[in-house]
Simulated scan of single mutants.
Amino acid sequence: MTASFLLEARGIARRDTRSDTVLLEPTDFALAPGERVSVTGASGAGKSVLLRALALLDPLDSGHLVWHGQPVERRAIPRYRRHVAYLRQRPALFDGTVEDNLRYPYSLHAYHDVRFDRVQAVRLAEAAGRASSFLDKRANDLSGGEAQLTALIRVLQLSPEVLLLDEPTASLDPDAARAVEALVTAWFEAGQGARASVWVSHDPAQAARVSTRRLIMQAGRLSDSKQVQVTR
């Protein structure tokens, strides 16, 4: 493994301390710029555990992560999370408009040096097939698909380098799922080969559409990679 990777996991592992159950076997993983990786597997196989570990949302029992060739130390985690963004299956939005929700990250200290750009937000909404008026909708009036699009736009407007998607379309209808896929594809292509993604999915057909490398999770173990042809 070399510094040519954006993100590396070296022997990361997780256990359930209450039951002493292994959630994630010691795992090595590397993500290069321009890669789109999908992870499939049965429910309970450890897919979400892996993704949350890569996002440093849960403490690791062993191993460590490397970002641009440098180990991620505790004090660097906020900066790391700025560049490695995690999107969960069920988004958390607060009462207000879509724009209010999009503005929220800019109130956090980690983003004190950047400002909300409505033009950029509208451009992202349009890439998902929504008009500029979408930003004026109330969060309580959004469908499940629209709520997920809002959460995704909220992440993408911050220009992460790596996107970790934890079954973001599992509860959406096919049209909404395709809108999410289209928005992620537009973000990836705008990065001109500098961005990468890891998409956890329960749908093998979707995994084939959204990735160029497919992995399988079984009982906390990540399989060898498999090269696949991208389907649009």
Rank of each mutant, 00 (worst) to 15 (best):
Glu8Leu: 11
Gly11Gln: 07
Gly11Lys: 01
Ala13Cys: 14
Ala13His: 10
Thr17Ile: 10
Thr17Phe: 09
Asp20Ser: 14
Thr21Trp: 08
Gly34Ala: 08
Gly34Cys: 04
Glu35Ser: 11
Glu35Gln: 15
Arg36Leu: 10
Val39Tyr: 06
Thr40Asp: 03
Gly44Thr: 05
Gly46Tyr: 07
Lys47Arg: 10
Ser48Cys: 07
Leu57Arg: 12
Asp58Arg: 02
Pro59Cys: 08
Leu60Ser: 07
Val66Phe: 00
Gly69Cys: 02
Gly69Asp: 03
Gly69Trp: 01
Gly69Asn: 01
Gln70Leu: 10
Gln70Met: 00
Arg79Thr: 08
His83Gln: 15
Val84Gly: 03
Val84Tyr: 08
Tyr86Glu: 06
Leu87Glu: 10
Arg88Gln: 15
Arg88Val: 08
Arg90His: 15
Ala92Arg: 13
Asp95Thr: 14
Gly96Ala: 12
Thr97Val: 04
Glu99Gln: 15
Glu99Leu: 14
Leu102Ile: 06
Tyr106Gly: 06
Tyr106Gln: 03
Leu108Gly: 05
His109Ile: 09
Arg115Pro: 05
Asp117Ala: 14
Val119Lys: 14
Gln120His: 15
Val122Tyr: 12
Arg123Lys: 15
Glu126Gly: 09
Gly129Tyr: 02
Gly129Phe: 02
Gly129Ser: 10
Lys137Met: 14
Ala139Ile: 04
Asn140Thr: 13
Asn140Phe: 10
Ser143Asn: 08
Ser143Thr: 13
Leu149Thr: 00
Leu149His: 03
Ala151Phe: 05
Ala151Asn: 05
Ile153Met: 09
Arg154Gly: 07
Gln157Pro: 07
Leu158Asp: 06
Glu161Cys: 04
Glu161Gln: 08
Val162Lys: 04
Asp166Trp: 00
Glu167Cys: 02
Thr169His: 01
Ala170Asp: 02
Asp175Met: 12
Ala179Thr: 04
Val180Phe: 02
Val184Asp: 00
Phe188Gly: 05
Ala190Asp: 14
Ala194Gln: 14
Ala196Tyr: 01
Ser197Lys: 01
Val198Cys: 01
Val200Ser: 00
Asp203Met: 01
Ala205Ile: 09
Ala207Trp: 00
Arg209Gln: 08
Leu215Lys: 00
Ile216Asp: 08
Ile216Ala: 12
Met217Ala: 08
Lys226Leu: 12
Gln229Trp: 05
Val230Lys: 06
Thr231Phe: 00
Thr231Lys: 04
